[in-house]
Design a protein around this nucleic acid. Structure first.
Lengths: 203, 203
DNA sequence: TTCACTTTCGGCACCGAGTGCCATTAGTGT
DNA sequence: ACACTAATGGCACTCGGTGCCGAAAGTGAA
């Protein structure tokens, strides 16, 4: 069993200790990617730099493409909880907007890292492609929430469409944010999501 | 130079004739994918079935992932032209809606093939991921059109957001269509795009 | 200390996608 | 027969990813 999964909080542990951690490995890999480029960096390079075997690398990450995503699933859980705890009176789209903004609000210290991570993800074709699979979980969380609100199954057209549209617009906002150095991600996200709420009929 | 590219309409041709065509190869490959599954089919399998060398396969398709997409770029050109020729009086979002419906209107004879292709693309993780790269061109066409209409650069937030939202919703409609055998793709697309025009504020 | 047990490590061999290189083949026109 | 052109396909290689399995490094108990 991979060390990443076993990280669970057992009272005490037995057996050999993991040589490193996913977070540490991610940090190191991101640094190398930034220097040499994603495609130009082999898994061997990363493993060698981390002082572990190539085989071991794949126990920490299912694929090279998964490295930049960190604990995305954990983050998603937070968003799911945030959505679930919203007041029933608040309009669906407003809850959604707030949750997405929260989800993408990071402490200023992490801002630079976020920028690096997202630049990598959004500008590297292999990662752009791979990200689709991560986005699917994100959409799932949104769709489930909307489905509950409108009283439809989560796989119905409306919840799915709302989720897909929000995802598309959010990614667009990220791309816009990356385009200029000093801009405010949350503000751009808010503007973009505003477009969705109003609808495009005005155009 | 690959045979696919050289297909240009020169007066007369010299040199060895291509052993097959991209269309023929795609047809054959899709059949094998349907029988054995995408992941389970190797490029060697396809090449052998087509009676060509493995190396030759990669002259017809840049990757195994590109096989199911056929002449997507050609189709895109048609949509671009359709958008460009729209009356200036017609609202942007209406033009968009019509163009997308046209783009996805196929002769009934091709309906079964479309379903197979899209099932493959939308339900195979590797293809789901890869499709992102194709969708980028699609978004580009939409964004350019919207940009022209609203008098902004194509990479500005609004055109990009409109394009991304439309893409997300359109893909959702496709997924909905695949879910039930006898449904009408265009009708579902129309319904989904309608949601976008109105906006989600009502929810 | 030694033994049993647990968990991670990491080497090895293997598969499949994709690429650069290049001789060969199958056409054309002179 | 000869030059020219374009496609073919074999070969060798890189890289991501996986199954297998013995070795290493921890734990607690005898």
């Amino acid at each position: 069993m991979p060390p990443v999964v076993t990280m669970g909080a057992d009272g005490r542990r037995t057996g050999r200790r993991p040589a490193t951690s996913a977070a540490e490995l991610e940090h190191l890999a991101l640094q190398i990617f930034a220097e040499r480029g994603f495609e130009e960096t082999t898994v061997d390079d990363i493993a060698r730099a981390a002082g572990i075997g190539r085989r071991t690398f794949f126990r920490y990450f299912a694929s090279k493409n998964d490295v930049p995503w960190g604990d995305f699933d954990g983050q998603l859980e937070v968003m799911r909880a945030s959505l679930a705890s919203a007041a029933a009176g608040e309009p669906t789209v407003a809850v959604l907007r707030r949750a997405i903004l929260d989800f993408n609000t990071y402490p200023p210290a992490e801002g630079a890292w976020l920028r690096r991570r997202m630049t990598l993800i959004l500008r590297t074709p292999a990662l752009q492609a791979h990200s689709t699979l991560r986005y699917a979980s994100w959409r799932g969380v949104i769709a489930e929430f909307v489905a509950r609100r409108v009283g439809q199954p989560a796989d119905a057209l409306t919840p799915q469409a709302v989720a897909a549209a929000h995802l598309g617009v959010a990614v667009t906002a990220y791309e816009q944010w990356l385009r200029e150095e000093g801009t405010d991600l949350v503000a751009i996200l808010d503007e973009a999501l505003g477009l969705l709420a109003t609808g495009f009929a005005a155009f």
